[in-house]
């Protein structure tokens, strides 16, 4: 994955954000955030507290902005919030289920509130619930839905009024692996084949890689990076975390003999090895040196990795 500068100017974009600044009390949450997005799937990345959800709320016009402007499909949020919101569908992370209603009633109700005539809203509610895979459960009370079904229901209510953009806040949160795959499949289909723009707020890099073509990285309320996600070819090398006991210098020598790099990170060894045969080579080196392995774990790329890479790049650029 790599992040490169995008060429979309805020003024010409489907979603344009200019100098967005917002603070809770004295603490700034968003600072001079500016970007422009074309209608495509965009990942909004950042650690907890980086301002992702606040940015989504600002896009919805929910926050009294200190400074800045948001426009959605040409509608200025300050001047025409209803027009702008008609083009947005929001899936919240927390809550988002109206109690005491069946799935279809809730989606139809929110469709009506989205500006649809009642009959259209009811028909659309059935259609989108079928699309998200809740057709069989649509008459059940939404309160009784499982976490996976709740997430689908929240996606359905975001879709019902056929917006241009979907703002999805941690949509795979709390899902089991099968539910997560299914949700990612839906998001990918919506972005790639159904023409929706998606802003996917998450701290899971893998979700962004699955769905998005572009990323926004926030850190401490500042836009750290805005770039395209380009699917990198399967890496030539992979990293493994190793823990064990025995003659470690001999193990490290065996690793060097096998052409592998090992760096100590506190009580773990981080080994860089060819992706296709890395684990086999590590095991062979351990066997040859008599080093007993307690743990051999492929190191997953995390958001932090991307962050540190971006921060390092920024620091390097500053030094140059």
């Amino acid at each position: 994955m790599e992040a490169t500068k995008t060429a979309v100017k805020p003024a010409a974009a489907a979603i344009a954000v200019r100098d967005l600044t917002f603070a809770y009390a004295a603490a700034p949450v968003l600072q001079d955030v500016s970007f422009g997005l074309e209608k495509r799937a965009v990942g909004l990345l950042g650690p907890n507290g980086s301002g992702k959800t606040t940015l989504l709320r600002a896009l919805l016009g929910h926050l009294p902005l200190k400074r800045g402007a948001v426009s959605v499909m040409g509608c200025d949020m300050a001047r025409d919030p209803r027009g702008a919101r008609r083009r947005l569908g929001w899936m919240p992370e927390r809550g988002g289920i109206l109690p005491g209603m069946s799935g279809v009633a809730m989606v139809a109700y929110l469709g009506e509130l989205g500006g649809m005539p009642p009959t259209d809203a009811l028909q659309r509610a059935h259609e989108v619930l079928n699309y998200v895979g809740l057709a069989d459960e649509r008459y059940r009370e939404a309160d009784t839905y499982s976490q996976g079904m709740r997430q689908r229901l929240k996606l359905a209510q975001a879709l019902v009024h056929d917006p241009d953009w979907l703002l999805l806040d941690e949509p795979t949160s709390g899902l089991d692996p099968r539910g997560r795959v299914s949700m990612l499949e839906l998001m990918r289909d919506l972005a790639a084949h159904k023409g929706f723009g998606i802003i996917l707020s998450t701290h899971l890099l893998a979700d962004v890689r699955e769905v998005c073509q572009e990323i926004l990285v926030l850190r401490q309320g500042r836009l750290l990076s805005h770039g395209r996600v380009e699917a990198a070819p399967p890496g030539a090398t992979a990293q493994f975390l190793v823990e064990g006991f025995g003659d470690e210098p001999a193990f490290q020598a065996a690793l060097r003999d096998a052409g592998l790099e090992a760096v100590r990170r506190e009580r773990l060894l981080e080994i860089t090895a060819p992706a296709d045969a890395g684990a086999r080579l590590v095991l062979a080196a351990a066997s040859a040196s008599g080093f007993a392995l307690r743990r051999l774990q492929p190191r997953r790329e995390t958001l932090e990795d991307l962050f540190y890479q971006l921060v390092d790049d920024a620091d390097d650029a500053r030094k140059d």
Partner: peptide
């Protein structure tokens, strides 16, 4: 249920 935000994310 965080429903207020859900309402106010609509054009109302």
């Amino acid at each position: 249920e965080n429903g207020l935000a859900l309402y106010l994310a609509r054009p109302l």
